[in-house]
């Protein structure tokens, strides 16, 4: 099968999976697209929103649409790391000899739903770190690989709420995208009521298997990107650093730490998925602009002034993108702008 054929197959699979999720989830079209983008790019997604907006349902529906194992962990303050990764237990064999046997934790699944991740203590939250980055966990000195593809979808309540523990920066950085689930519009709310208060059940079909997802992940990395588009992505990430000599005024004023190189990777990989899903074989500047907020909003740490002024990171990222674009245009002569 040629690459063009495979690319077309990817577009079909993307649309089909999206359609299956939309059978259950009303609205949140952009969120669904970004979740699928993150999954095909091989990243993990953090969904943030107040309770009751359908975050968990979205992830469960996505898992139903994939032929992959799924497990869910409800994070609570008394959850321990061993409850996630598993532990060695003593078992007795037929001869009566006792030995340690590893009891797999719920992390050993293709799709892991970490529900309300910021209700657990930082120690337990950190139990996910190695698994998310390396695709393996170390228990009792032995490294155990996680099944591939491994995909963490975490939900969290806004950190201002009671009884929450903010995720450490190191763990936030391991999330490919952070998506903000917003309250539905009036029409969407009406549709939710109609769909969820009637007797009919919606069946979600399984449209994708694990190996297919892995194959698409390889295909996505082959999407070419022009150097000026890559430079644009790099300039956006660099512009989030107040120390950079070309950083815009907003970054110098409100940002303490800018996005890491993982942010740039997420930006470009996400843009590749977006391009391919839209039937293009190359990344455009618009792809980068569209994904700047989900890829960078959780990687920018505001300084004291930024927090005191209540600066919204989405607005900040938007202003940074605008300033980078304006600077790029400014450098060009009038006939090449």
């Amino acid at each position: 099968m040629g690459q063009e054929e495979r690319a077309r197959e990817f577009v079909g699979a993307f649309q089909a999976l999206r359609a299956e999720v939309e059978k259950v989830i009303v609205g949140h079209g952009e969120i669904i697209t970004h979740v699928l983008t993150g999954m095909f790019a091989g990243g993990h997604i953090l969904l943030e929103g107040v309770p009751g907006l359908g975050k968990t349902l979205l992830i469960k529906t996505l898992a139903e649409g994939l032929e992959l194992s799924f497990s869910r962990i409800q994070f609570t303050p008394d959850l321990m790391p061993a409850d996630i990764v598993g532990t060695n237990i003593i078992v007795e064999d037929a001869d009566g000899r006792k030995h340690f046997q590893f009891q797999h934790g719920p992390i050993f699944a293709h799709i892991l739903l970490a529900d309300e991740i910021n209700r657990a203590t930082p120690k337990t939250q950190s139990a996910l770190l190695e698994g998310m980055q390396e695709g393996a966990v170390t228990v009792g000195g032995a490294s155990r690989p996680l099944p591939a593809p491994f995909f963490v979808l975490a939900t969290q309540n806004p950190i201002e709420m009671e009884g929450t523990y903010p995720l450490p920066e190191a763990q936030l950085d391991r999330f490919f995208f952070k998506l903000r689930v917003r309250y539905p519009a009036l029409e969407e709310l009406n549709a939710i009521i109609d769909r969820t208060t009637q007797a009919r059940q919606v069946a979600v079909n399984r449209v994708l298997s694990g190996p297919t997802v892995l194959g698409f992940r390889e295909l996505i990395r082959e999407v070419p990107i022009a150097s000026h588009v890559r430079d644009f992505a790099s300039a956006i990430v660099m512009a989030t650093h107040p120390q950079w000599d070309q950083a815009p005024e907003v970054a110098r004023r409100f940002v303490r730490y800018g996005a890491s190189p993982r942010g740039a990777q997420a930006l470009v990989l996400g843009a590749k998925v977006r391009a391919l899903a839209e039937g293009r074989y190359n990344v455009s500047v618009d792809d980068i602009k569209a994904l700047a907020a989900p890829a960078l909003r959780h990687r920018i740490i505001l300084n004291f002034e930024g927090e005191a002024e209540g600066v919204d990171t989405d607005t900040l990222v938007g202003q940074i993108v605008e300033s980078v674009e304006a600077a790029a245009v400014e450098r060009k002569e009038v006939f090449l702008r």
Binding site: E4, L219, E222, V223, A226, R280
Partner: peptide
């Protein structure tokens, strides 16, 4: 959508991927 610029840059690169052919054709 930056297709022409990408083709111009990638068509002659040694590390070009099979998708570049599809991009050129498109």
């Amino acid at each position: 959508d930056d297709r022409v610029a990408t083709v111009l840059e990638w068509a002659e690169r040694p590390d070009r991927t099979p998708l570049v052919d599809a991009l050129v054709a498109d």
